[in-house]
Amino acid sequence: MRLITALGIGVIFGLGIAISGMINPAKVLNFFDIAGTWDPSLALVMLGALAVAIPGYRLVLGRPAPALEDRFHLPQTRVIDRRLVLGSAVFGIGWGIAGFCPGGAVPALGTGEPGVYLFTASLVGGLLLAQGIQRWTGSPARTPT
């Protein structure tokens, strides 16, 4: 049951990424190119997602527990530190170079586009590298949201 609902939720997410245009790095890069070939579509993706997620979360998180598990797994960290800010800044640099972000690339894996595999392979490389460094330096592994 858990796996079927998760599969279905994945399908809805993948459909959303494809329909919205987030799956297309050319469109994503054009959103960030206000001085050039600007395509404001992605602002509407964000708007559409938040218009559903804000009231939806409000409703759901007001309940004592999720339907299929005993508790909500929410990130407990509250601190805004250098790690959060620098990490996010570095993410933006990579996003601006390649045009893919993790949420746009994973649903694109079925399309057979070579760039998607190249990006996902290096993304996984980067994730493993960071996990390795974090283990090596002994810094607490924080579960990414």
Partner: peptide
Amino acid sequence: ASLAGGALIGLAAVLLMALHGRIL
């Protein structure tokens, strides 16, 4: 299309929280 696709992304996030209690 972007608004509709965005709404689906939001719906997936809400369902994952409602059923499994996790951040998408």
